[in-house]
Design a protein around this nucleic acid. Structure first.
Lengths: 362, 362
DNA sequence: AAGGGTTTCTACATCGATGTAAACCTCTCC
DNA sequence: GGAGAGGTTTACATCGATGTAGAAACCCTT
């Protein structure tokens, strides 16, 4: 009637509970005969292991937390899709949290719920500082996406943002554009996706021997479409309008396309527009969007891979620390953790109509 | 050093473990003095309850599963955003699963992992049959979104799809359009979002005394942008092209806008386009998109509300069945479950440029 | 001051699965 | 034939929190 327990399976198969557990966990020293008997009892009862019990005993949940600004943003929706698939392939489940860009929520992910439910956290931070990351519970495996923080504090996966921005800017320059604005750009030094991309932009300008006009670097608070539309409208309606917009994500770029349309400008004739992220809508916008396309699948794969690797390591030392044996001998689990790893994911510039690329059919 | 347990708090505060537990759970009969002492010990040690232990004991995880076709689809991304927020407000966490429209994955959500991790499941099914739902474990609380299955099998939240489609069609008719195609339409009888919307479409035609041309009902496999583009291209390039496209979601509609553009047609002059879902992208497309806007926040709120209500009920009976008391008296927990509830969420037709609405600034 | 009723608190068992250590086999080989 | 090796199985303790039942402390009443 009620959901069967290991005890019930054991009784039916005429063996001990531990033997059932051994079968469940593919322990080698179980005779074929017993294994069969247990398997049959399991099938007969429709037994499925209870994760609460296993979790309590093992200290692992099989859940990974994915912490992103928001699923309503297509880039993160697409990314979450891939992370969920990837985790699934490795028999893990994904718990999604949204930060809405708020720093304390990012923090909470690191020491709050993170360790409660999840074996590890994949975090796409916007506001975290280096300090925050230093102060985190070192027992919780973390992988960072994007580059909102300095390197060397945790495993980290991202594209080479500076190079990508340089290439995109160079592409616009090669089209003959000379006043290129950066939507979402930020001049501040140090880490941060926006900062890195802005550096790449300036490097490209410098390489072309062009002067830098600070008025063309336009920060935005949230990297959303409305902000892109507004910022673009202001720039395009201003005294010395740009002839190209390098938008630091596709949301901003799609907003900018709309703004250009409303301003009665033709894209790319009057104004060229490029973005970052290669979200699917950019393939179908009018015009289609030139963009820096990160290898999102690789990003997701690497993030999950690095994380599970850490989880495994934490498990091994943690388990050792816990067992009586290790406790007795003392020094067992005190291995130093591996140093943080950096992984760079490939990207490519996809040229579409918004910077003079061919129509999709061509 | 290691993470503190209730035992440690109890020792430090000089009380029993149960008293600590009582403080943690706001049990009333704890003197103010002890409460303070325990609180202080908790703070001092930085204690946080271990969810594995609690889960095992209580039989509840505080996790809700959200099962959708895919997060890469903006509608489900936006919906997931809202569900996560809503669950958070009620101190629950959301686990996301993707079905990619595959029926067995939807099934797995109902009897597989669903009950493993989650207290309940919010499911947006595409392929499930009534049978599938009947056969599910009745102990697992489920709320269905959209209308892929007949009513009466589980709690269910959706807009009135038939009426919505009727209104949208009526709007197109009022513009003078006479050949209205349905992208994603399906003529099959019975349940299903596409079927309901197609019925609404036909009802509107009938009400206007117009004939029905089956060639104008164009099914699509996955409701994605490329499919919308392709289907629209074929219709628009066909022998008797339509003068309006009722697209059964915004993805299809955005794809159709692109196809119209490539066919050299002006929207809405040559062809009017309307969608469903009101994804944010439609506010910024060129032209902006007329769409049926469901009250997504209400959808998310109701779904979580209904689900938690069921979870609470299941908990009460389940708990009763488990305790010695109930087991002895026998008949305690055998209350019949509440019958399935239907909730209709409001929607409205938002008229934008793609059917002749005003530009956003106006 | 005894009795009845609360409040406050604790000892213990329990949720389900698995690690440990040791018992029990079976077989080999001297 | 008995020691030894190694495979197979089991009893028991354990992970951390909480429900139960009842003891202990307290309060009020008559």
């Amino acid at each position: 009637m009620a959901r069967p327990r290991i005890k019930d399976v054991a009784r039916l198969a005429g063996v001990s509970e531990k033997t059932v557990s051994n079968v469940l966990n593919d322990y080698v020293h179980v005779s074929e005969a017993t294994r069969q008997a247990v398997r049959q009892a399991i099938d007969e009862l429709g037994y499925r292991v209870n994760l609460a019990g296993r979790h309590l005993r093992r200290g692992r949940t099989g859940i990974l937390a994915l912490v992103v600004p928001g699923l309503a943003m297509p880039y993160f929706g697409e990314l979450a899709d891939l992370v969920v698939r990837e985790a699934e392939q490795r028999s893990h489940t994904v718990l999604v949290h949204q930060t809405h860009g708020e720093g304390d929520r990012e923090l909470a992910a690191l020491d709050g719920f993170g360790s409660d439910f999840a074996d590890g956290v994949i975090l796409s931070p916007l506001a975290l500082t280096r300090q925050d990351l230093r102060r985190r519970d070192p027992a919780l495996p973390v992988v960072l996406l994007g580059e909102a923080v300095e390197q060397g504090v945790a495993d980290h996966v991202a594209i080479d943002n500076e190079r990508a921005a340089r290439e995109a800017t160079a592409h616009l320059l090669a089209l003959g554009r000379r006043r290129i604005a950066v939507l979402g750009g930020r001049e501040a030094p140090g880490p941060g996706t926006a900062e890195a991309r802005t550096r790449g932009y300036r490097a490209a300008l410098a390489a072309a021997g062009l002067p830098h006009d600070p008025a063309l670097v336009r920060p935005v608070p949230g990297f959303l479409m409305p902000e892109g539309a507004r910022a673009a409208a202001e720039l395009l309606g201003g005294p010395r309008p740009p002839d190209a917009l390098l938008c630091l994500n596709d949301e901003l770029a799609l907003g900018a396309l709309r703004a250009a349309h409303e301003a009665g400008l033709r894209v790319p004739r009057d104004i060229a527009v490029a973005g970052f992220d290669d979200v699917e809508r950019g393939h179908f916008s009018v015009p289609t969007l030139t963009t820096v396309s990160p290898d999102k699948a690789a990003l997701a794969r690497l993030a999950v891979e690095l994380l599970l690797d850490r989880v495994g390591a934490a498990q091994r030392t943690g388990a050792a620390q816990r067992t009586g044996a290790a406790r007795r001998t003392g020094a067992a689990g005190e291995r130093e953790p591996e140093p943080p790893r950096e992984r760079v994911v490939p990207h490519r510039l996809v040229v579409r109509e918004s910077t003079g690329g061919p129509p999709p059919g061509a």
